[in-house]
Design a binder for these strands. Structure first.
Lengths: 115, 115
DNA sequence: ACCTTATTCAACCACCAGGTTGACAATCTG
DNA sequence: CAGATTGTCAACCTGGTGGTTGAATAAGGT
């Protein structure tokens, strides 16, 4: 899989991981705390965290036996940038097409603005 | 996998699919056109398109034997909404922490609340 | 009608992802 | 030290993903 963006998207393609991110946005948490709501073993959750960590979405520090997980919000920018870029491009194209269509029909009907 | 958001994220976790989306943002294209730059068979690309379609990222119409692919930009909103929501939350928390730290060092002698 | 072009379907394969159980490491607490 | 808590590692299973080749379908061009 290799590249960063792929890892980030893949990490968020799993509902459990997405839910963990959502909860971590509110506050840091330990592995067992995170595992509690889900019907899977704590080992499975540990694996999920590894995925999130390798995607750069979370970081873990050590605190006695506990290992608090912290959300790294900056990584979201990577996605947002990518998404917004192409969305904007596609929407502009849509608007252009819209303009063409309006121009074509507009010569007869004269409709003014769209939204 | 089931849910929409998972499918969208999973779809974009693949570099080829992401590249196809990027190209489709510029203009609609047929399957063979899309396949051309990649070192995979056209069948593989057809499969990728199926994934993108099931995620609601693209739609296909029929035009003679050709089957032009069109990007559906609206789906991006789903992701952006999700991402922005939690990023904002996490950043606010960061700012709160920042404020607490500033307050602590700023007053120095007066520690009242813990957290 | 026949051939060519565009695309999908089917069967197959190698590999990865998400889950399990069981053992181990690291730390606090009695 | 002994025991409980917290978390990871290793081995294993199952199912899905991305790729292949080969055949089938759909529509146009001649």
């Amino acid at each position: 899989m290799e590249d960063r963006l792929s890892r980030v998207f893949a990490a968020l393609a799993d509902p459990i991981r997405r839910d963990m991110v959502a909860r971590l946005a509110a506050d840091d948490a330990t592995v067992t705390e995170l595992a509690e709501p889900y019907a899977v073993t704590v080992q499975a959750v540990s694996k999920h965290l590894k995925v999130l960590e390798e995607a750069g979405l979370v970081s873990r520090t050590r605190q006695a036996q506990r290992r608090p997980v912290h959300l790294e919000a900056e990584v979201f920018d990577l996605m947002t940038t990518w998404i917004e870029r192409y969305r904007r491009e596609a929407e502009q194209r849509y608007r252009r097409l819209d303009a063409v269509l309006t121009a074509m029909t507009g010569t007869e009907t004269r409709e003014e603005e769209a939204s």
